Amino acid sequence: MKKLRLVCWSFLLLSLTACVAPQSIVTQPTSARAQPSVLTGNNNGAIFQAATAKMLFEEPVARRIGDILVVTIEENLTAVNKANSSTNRDGGLTLSGSADIPYMPAALGKLFNATADISTNNKFAGKGETNSTNTFKGSIAVTVIDVFANGNLSIGGEKQVVVNGYNNVLRFTGVVNPNDIKAGNTISSTRVADARIEQVGQGAISDANTMGWMQRFFLSVWPF
């Protein structure tokens, strides 16, 4: 009875472990609301107000919390690693001897008149090669989350597309320099610092490409 209870608890713990979703690499917020404008006590009645003014000849790009910025994802990473090694070692040994002693037994005579020739050869050759290529193209509209003291902008955004029950989620966070924002209020992902890009899917296709929890359990504990 105790063994059966132990097995039931083990399967229950494994089931709960299997239900835990993979940890996301995006830890920063992906949305922020614009802060209310600070109203100054002095109002001179003029049209220009420093707190809410927008320059007529200034490019309308994201500069404040809550502003929207378009990020063009242009990630193309390639890594190649090669290694070759070889060793060769040869050795040889020749031993000969003769003896003629009267009244020596025949067995001992063969021993003293024996000749030995020993040779060894040890070779090793190893070769390894790793190629990795990652290409990610697309675009996503993000929101300015925070403005740092030096003027840099912390951005974050999330896009969800659901087609026939399959949910495709794209998340993006990072830090940008306002001077790198191009005309049209866009910036390349290659100019974003601390960029974290995550694309996950939820649905039948994702389930089909995921290893079952029982397989993951035996893969982690099986020593061979």
Rank of each mutant, 00 (worst) to 15 (best):
S15N: 07
S15F: 15
S15K: 07
L16W: 07
L16Y: 08
A18F: 15
A18R: 11
P22A: 12
V26P: 06
T27A: 06
Q28Y: 08
P29K: 01
T30C: 09
A32K: 02
A32W: 01
Q35H: 02
S37Y: 06
V38H: 05
L39V: 15
T40E: 06
N42M: 04
N42A: 03
A50P: 05
A51G: 01
T52Y: 00
A53E: 09
E59R: 02
P60S: 00
V61M: 01
V61K: 02
A62Q: 04
R64G: 05
G66V: 10
I68F: 01
L69W: 03
V71L: 03
E74Q: 15
E75A: 06
L77P: 00
L77Y: 15
T78G: 05
A79Y: 10
A79C: 00
V80P: 09
N81Y: 13
N81T: 02
N81P: 00
S85A: 06
S86L: 07
N88L: 07
N88M: 08
R89P: 00
R89Y: 06
R89I: 12
G91F: 11
G91N: 09
G91L: 08
T94S: 15
T94G: 11
L95C: 06
S96H: 05
S96N: 14
S96C: 04
S98A: 11
A99L: 15
D100N: 14
I101A: 04
I101K: 07
P102M: 04
Y103G: 09
P105F: 01
G109M: 05
G109T: 12
K110R: 12
K110Q: 14
L111D: 03
F112M: 15
N113T: 10
N113S: 12
A114M: 12
T115Q: 14
I118W: 05
T120R: 12
T120H: 04
N121I: 03
N122T: 13
N122I: 15
G126I: 00
K127C: 01
E129C: 00
T130E: 14
T130G: 04
N131W: 06
N134E: 03
K137L: 06
G138L: 02
G138K: 07
S139Y: 05
I140E: 03
I140H: 02
I140K: 03
V142W: 02
V142P: 14
V142G: 05
